[in-house]
Amino acid sequence: MATADAVQALQERFPDLGIEPRPLMRYLNGKPSDQLWVRVPADRLLEVLTFLRDDERTKFEALADLGGIDYLNYPDAEDRFAVIYNLLSHTHGHRLWVKVFVNDPDPEIPSATSVWKGAEWPEREVFDMFGIRFPGHPDLRRILMPQNFVDYPLRKDYPLHGKGEREAFEVLTRDSA
């Protein structure tokens, strides 16, 4: 069963969302890539994800990956942030990408941890790196950066070399140790 069938099932179940499958990529020769994504509004996300996990035609039992992206300087972007869910079906062997767009200030997306346990750490990472909050997450803290760090490093307006945090430590000399 191909991904197109899964998208069709999704369209039949949620006709009001206006879901249309789009290829992730269109090559220079005009050929679309074989990977499809759909756009889902944040407030209906959990409903859609639960349906995608449970329905016979979709059966996405696993969340292969979850990642954030900051579309600040992206050509023709309308929204600032997106969280991209990479769904994987063990039964049918197909994949689907679900994108949820959110904006400043206070970007919030309901947590998918109730649907897949595997979403727990990736969501924490997105929170750590982009500052997108996930209401309903059991333990939403920073995961990679120190707890008292204030910025969100993967946002496009954060410089590559940081703002001097890496130099701000006590110096240990031979005399002091």
Binding site: A64, D65, G67, G68, I69, D70, N73, Y74, I84, N86, K117, G118, E120, W121, P122, E125
Partner: peptide
């Protein structure tokens, strides 16, 4: 523009 890595160790360690 963005290179998200799906690291197996990260997901497995959960």
């Amino acid at each position: 523009y963005r290179a998200r890595c799906r690291p197996p160790s990260f997901i497995n360690y959960q």
